[in-house]
């Protein structure tokens, strides 16, 4: 699935998030991180694009 976010916007987001969260991206790792981030954004859009019922609560401490 193609990512619907502009590549430059994703790159700017990565720069800002990297700085805000204190997780630097080394220059030699940058291209691979951008590629991985593009895949994650595309997958994330599948998730956020779904209309979850309002009453559904998150399951971070899920038990089956």
């Amino acid at each position: 699935m193609d990512c619907l976010v502009d590549k430059d916007a994703a790159s700017r987001y990565l720069d800002a998030a990297s700085e805000m969260l204190g997780l630097p991206i080394q220059a030699e790792h940058r291209a691979a991180v951008e590629a991985a981030f593009a895949v994650l954004l595309a997958q994330g859009q599948l998730v956020t694009g779904f209309a979850i019922p309002e009453e559904t609560e998150a399951a971070p401490r899920y038990r089956p």
Binding site: Y13, L14, A17, S18, L21, L23, I25, H29, A32, V33, E34, A35, A36, F37, V39, L40, G44, V47, T48, F50, I52, P53, T56, E57, A58, A59, P60, Y62, P64
Partner: peptide, 29 residues
């Protein structure tokens, strides 16, 4: 090298994605 970029990119994801993913998990269950 196969692990590093996915971990870095993963840690930097928007909070919205993770929160909605956990909500979706409850729905899918």
């Amino acid at each position: 090298p196969a692990t590093r970029p996915r971990l870095i990119a993963g840690a930097l994801q928007p909070a919205e994605t993770i929160y909605q993913a956990q909500r979706f998990r409850a729905w899918f269950h």
